[in-house]
């Protein structure tokens, strides 16, 4: 997420997010199972080529579990409604699995710098791109701070026995500290000319590589093919 590298098998963030949105169509339009498998394999291949071997395998395993598990539900037909509802959840997971998988690929393989460059490239207004950049910056701080607060609470002997006051004790310091950090981030940005009206440049450029074309094209073919088949 934080460091950038140049991998010929890593599409730029714009293509990756484009694919996520495109795969959103598969939720509403039934596509052929073989094409679905093809999409999963393309994503796993890219995971693998980006050094994420575990994710490549998990991706295939989860999809296999979802798509092979469901037919067996026939047996459960006569079971009580509560378990049926539980399987409803599985069906929902299965439905959104394709865009979810592409979304995971986007998040795991994109560095923040490139995402910011991409937002500039597609002319996302500053009022939206700056808060998004801040989110990436703030999230790790948030994790750190909430861990510290929880630790302080354990040492003070505050437990979850009274959930309402527990939540109060977490959220007050958390929001106060977050507000302070927010001021610090803003000061750091302002003293580095972020409000300068000249056209900004980016150190990391958004490159359109062969893999971008290949990824886009393969996915388009698969989705259209799957729907028309």
């Amino acid at each position: 997420m934080s460091t950038f590298s140049d991998n010929p098998y890593n599409p730029n963030p714009i293509s990756k997010i484009g694919i996520v949105i495109l795969l959103g169509f598969t939720v509403f339009h039934q596509i052929n199972i073989y094409f679905e498998w093809a999409i999963i394999f393309v994503i796993s291949f890219l995971f693998y080529k980006n050094g994420l071997k575990n994710d490549a395998l998990k991706n295939i395993a989860f999809f296999a579990a979802f798509s092979c598990l469901l037919p067996d539900i026939v047996i459960i037909r006569n079971m009580n409604p509560f378990i049926m509802m539980f399987f409803m959840l599985f069906i929902v997971c299965r439905m959104i699995y394709l865009p979810f998988s592409a979304g995971k690929f986007f998040i795991k393989t994109s560095d923040v710098g490139s995402i910011i460059s991409s937002m500039d490239k597609i002319k996302v207004p500053q009022n939206i791109s700056i808060p998004i950049a801040v989110m990436f910056r703030f999230f790790p701080s948030f994790r750190e701070e909430s861990r510290n607060i929880k630790r302080a609470m354990r040492i003070r002997g505050i437990t979850f026995k009274n959930p309402i006051s527990y939540i109060e004790y977490v959220i007050v310091p958390l929001l106060v500290i977050s507000s302070n950090i927010s001021d610090d981030i803003a000061k750091a940005a302002e003293t580095k000319c972020i409000e300068n009206p000249v056209k900004k440049t980016r150190y990391l450029s958004v490159k359109i590589k062969t893999v971008d074309f290949a990824y886009m094209l393969l996915m388009l073919v698969m989705i259209l093919g799957g729907i028309l088949w």
């Binding site: 801040v134 929001l175 927010s182 001021d183 803003a186």
Partner: peptide, 14 residues
Amino acid sequence: RIKDLVTIGVFAVI
């Protein structure tokens, strides 16, 4: 202003 945009980002995370 920038301050507000940063606040938006921070609160969006929370």
